[in-house]
Every structure is written in structure tokens, then in C-alpha cells.
């Protein structure tokens, strides 16, 4: 049997909202350590890796390792029925072909239970190498979302150039061109508002902005986003999921031929 209970069910709903535009179905790997998921978009340009550690749940029980094929589209629809302060329990009974989502209101006066059929998915698992990135930019996730949205107006690709002083996002297309430059914050009251750059080497990489905008669907999970970059390496765009884990999106760069 697998059972995991989350007092703030809304966190799980935000995780699903963060994933479901990039991948519509995925295999969840459940073990004693927690839940992990790795999936690529249909064109194999981007990859998402999710980790939710067991100690982040109020209660967590996983008697044996399980691979659960789940439609994220359906799960998202079910989770929309959850109240914003509801407690969420995810359960898979032994020998069952369904996942049960139970939602309980804070005053314990309402209790809802939904079942979703599990799917047999062919999933390909990739080995993600440990990388010492040349540059890690940390910035408010709302700012990153706004920049990606704005860049998409100008063109299909965004070039991210990072130096020790700042990071520049630029795009050009048929309508024109533009760029936004952020300097490293020198003095901020709140850490979550800061832009910080750890840099070993300057980088300039070009990415499809459409994918960056999909990654930004996970921005409500975290005040800050980390962008890790090296030349000729996929971007890693990370949002923390509270102190229980993370969503890491990887995006293959575009190159000039």
C-alpha cells in the first residue's frame, strides 16, 4: 500500500499545474524515500525532474516501490475540485489499478474522494549528469515569468547572457527586438526579491521561449527560481517545493548553424 498525506494539499495542486503543460502524462516512482518523476515533453527538447521527499508529508507510507502511470491532465481536473485549505491524501491500495485522492476540509466537515485509473506508460528514463554550472542566477520567480512572457512577444527564442554584474534576456523577431537587463542586487530588504549571480565563467545561451513559459507555470511554488547555465549544456531551471523537494526543468539550447 502507498499512502501520503499533505496538510496543505494546495502544494500538490501547484506541482501538477507546474508540470501539466509540459507533460500530459507521466510515471510517478514511489519509494520509501518519497515520490520522484522524470518526463520529457513530446518533442524531447525539455525534461522535468520532480522530487518530493517522504519527510515533507505529514504521514507517508510506502510498503513497496511502485511505478504509477498517471494522466496529469485528469489529475489537474480532479485537484481543481479541492478547497484551497484542504488536506490531501494520496493512496494506492495493493492490487489496485487506481489512485485515490482524498480531500478533507480544514473544519473536517467535508470529505471528498476521487479515483483516477492508472495507466501503462512507456517511459524513457535519462541519466542526468552532475554538472558544475558556469553560472547560477537566482531571481524572483515572478520577475522571471514576466520576462519570459514579454520576450515571447518579440520572438521565438530568448538569449540569456550572464556576466558577473548582471544577466540580460534578449529576443528578436519580425516585429522588432528588445532586451531586459537585471543587475545583481546590492541591497534588498527581502531575500526573495534579490537577484544574485554566482559566476565562474560568462555564458550566452539561446532557448525556445515557449518552453521557458511552460516552466513558469511552476512559479507559484516558490518565490525564487534558480537558472543554472553552462555553454553547450541544457539550462536547469529549478523551483523549490517548500522544504520537501524541487521541480527541475532542463531545456536543450538552440544553436546557430
Amino acid at each position: 500500500m502507498f499512502e501520503a498525506r499533505l496538510a496543505q494539499g494546495s502544494i500538490f495542486a501547484k506541482v501538477i499545474e507546474g508540470l501539466r503543460e509540459l507533460v500530459t502524462e507521466a510515471t510517478w516512482e514511489c519509494s520509501g524515500n518519497g515520490i520522484t518523476l522524470q518526463a520529457m515533453d513530446s518533442s524531447h527538447v525539455a525534461l522535468v525532474s520532480l522530487v518530493l521527499r517522504s519527510d515533507g508529508f505529514e504521514t507517508y507510507r510506502c510498503d513497496r516501490n511502485m511505478s504509477l502511470g498517471i494522466s496529469l491532465t485528469s489529475m489537474s481536473k480532479v485537484l481543481k475540485m479541492m478547497g484551497k485549505d484542504d488536506t490531501l491524501t494520496i493512496r494506492v491500495n495493493d492490487d489496485s489499478d487506481a489512485i485515490v485522492l482524498s480531500m478533507e476540509s480544514q473544519n473536517q466537515e467535508e470529505f471528498a474522494e476521487y479515483e483516477l485509473r492508472l495507466m501503462d506508460l512507456d517511459s524513457e528514463h535519462l541519466g542526468i549528469p552532475d554538472t558544475d554550472y558556469s553560472c547560477v542566477v537566482k531571481m524572483p520567480s515572478t520577475k522571471f515569468s514576466r520576462i519570459c512572457r514579454d520576450m515571447a512577444i518579440l520572438g521565438d527564442s530568448v538569449t540569456i547572457c550572464s556576466t558577473k554584474d548582471g544577466v540580460k534576456f534578449g529576443a528578436k523577431g519580425d516585429v522588432g527586438q528588445g532586451s531586459i537587463r537585471l543587475n545583481q542586487s546590492t541591497n534588498v530588504d527581502k531575500e526573495e526579491d534579490a537577484v544574485s549571480i554566482e559566476l565562474r565563467e560568462a555564458v550566452a545561451l539561446t532557448f525556445a521561449v515557449r518552453y521557458l513559459n511552460m516552466f513558469c507555470k511552476a512559479a507559484p511554488l516558490s518565490n525564487q527560481v534558480n537558472l543554472s547555465m553552462s555553454e553547450d549544456t541544457p539550462l536547469m531551471c529549478e523551483f523549490k517545493v517548500g522544504d520537501m523537494g524541487h521541480i527541475r526543468f532542463y531545456l536543450a539550447p538552440k544553436i546557430e548553424d
Binding site: V45, A252, D257
Partner: peptide, 14 residues
């Protein structure tokens, strides 16, 4: 011309 690379260029299937 800008070419989009694939995840498979960088990460191998396990």
C-alpha cells in the same frame, strides 16, 4: 539559421 537541440544530445537513456 538557429537549430533546436534535443535532450538526447546531452543526456543518455538509462
Amino acid at each position: 539559421y538557429i537549430r533546436q537541440l534535443s535532450m538526447h544530445t546531452f543526456f543518455v537513456t538509462l
